[in-house]
Design a protein around this nucleic acid. Structure first.
Lengths: 233, 233
DNA sequence: CATTTTACATAGTACGTGCAATGAAAATGG
DNA sequence: CCATTTTCATTGCACGTACTATGTAAAATG
């Protein structure tokens, strides 16, 4: 389905007052959102390669001039998608943390944590980000461009992850090394689920059980890791 | 490093008898291997996008005519990589199974299984296959080409996986649904590790520990799943 | 209402990419 | 040693893609 059909499907039948005098910020926000949505949709439906500039304009219903104005170019769209995805992810984790009553049991905290994380990794936007980063990051180091964009998103995402982690599970003391290992394992599994969904074209059939299995694994690793048990390396 | 430098680094200094009268099968095998190796290397180093036909000929040291002759075109190379990767994977698992003495303990069997599986998922060839499939499979369903190539590699890989699985762990009876779930979970984690390695550009720092954690998880799930315990859905 | 700024539209273009077409060299087989 | 097949090399080209350049409409500003 084309994004352009979402908001103005019947606009052809109502030619009177087609544009009800929208304000600039409204226009700006809507076209930006349409471009981003169209790009994400296209990447998920036909893949990164085939998501061309023409395809984006076709799906979004806007012209290339709009893209140029708002994002500068195609790279601008892709960068914005990755950035938004990451920001919403941090916000979502923080929100899940806030909405949790004080002194919730460890398994329950793990549950909400994994669920909130999957809210991110399971989204179409993350899948798009994944393809974008994959297509971009590998080639970036070849060009020897050390920084330029979001100064190594990897460190950023790891930092945010660790921050939330420590706030959610303050009593844990597994040692820095083991903590990072379990974090990386969790990300691997969740991102792996997302990437397999990309390859299969449909969500994993046993998704819920797999998330439960991950929770169980985390719970097991956390058990017996109360304050003071960790050994730093 | 260029693949073309591997075998004929000093050939410029020994112009006499440059080509010691190789047989056809030798020539064929070598150039094919060089092309495949160059493509895999390129995908891992500079990414799928930048792995152009020119880049492949540059790294392999052969011309486009050779590629055309052996693979028909670029798609031929990519397809061969995926196919070879999958075949070697099945062979590797089977071999690991054969080399295992009768009545090995369950944890040890799990260990060799995970290690053998990572031998596959951790290889540069798999990472290349992953990018190829990602770039190709998503766009294929958009073009509505139901079969054509290896008739849904997904089913094939799942079948082979299940086949080995049942030979390695014949006493398990978790029920079909739960078995498939755990398989998918294992693939997700391993493939996730591989994809994160692609994004990071370097192998995961805690790889060994993460594999151990996966083994532990599997062992725990298998425990108490002797013959007759499974419940079919 | 006039002016300035912002938001979008249209047409043309430079460039990379994969490949077709053709030919030469190398090996095989008699 | 010759004919045939296999293997590899060269050149030119059609095509898609992202983008530049420039023009127009719409909203803000006073």
């Amino acid at each position: 389905m084309l994004v352009s059909e979402m908001a103005e499907t019947h606009s052809l039948r109502l030619p009177e007052r087609r544009r009800p005098r929208r304000t600039q910020v409204e226009r700006r926000a809507e076209t930006r959102a349409r471009i981003l949505a169209a790009t994400i949709e296209s990447i998920n439906e036909i893949g990164y390669q085939r998501t061309t500039s023409a395809e984006i304009t076709r799906r979004s219903g806007v012209t290339w001039g709009a893209v140029q104005h708002h994002f500068g170019g195609k790279d601008g769209i892709l960068g914005a998608i990755v950035e938004d995805s990451f920001n919403d992810f941090s916000a979502g984790l923080a929100e899940a943390f806030e909405s949790l009553p004080r002194k919730t049991s460890l398994p329950r905290r793990i549950g909400t944590f994994v669920d909130a994380a999957w809210e991110h990794f399971g989204s179409a936007r993350y899948r798009a980000s994944f393809e974008i980063l994959l297509a971009d990051s590998v080639s970036r180091e070849a060009r020897a461009e050390p920084e330029r964009n979001d100064l190594s998103w990897q460190n950023e995402i790891l930092k945010a992850w660790t921050r939330i982690w420590h706030r959610l599970f303050p009593e844990l003391d597994l040692g820095r090394r083991r903590t990072l290992m379990i974090q990386h394992y969790t990300i691997s599994t969740l991102s792996g689920l997302a990437s397999l969904q990309l390859l299969a074209g449909k969500p994993p059939p046993f998704l819920r059980d797999e998330l439960e299995l991950l929770k169980k694994t985390l719970a097991r690793e956390f058990r017996g890791a109360g304050s003071g048990n960790g050994k730093e390396d």
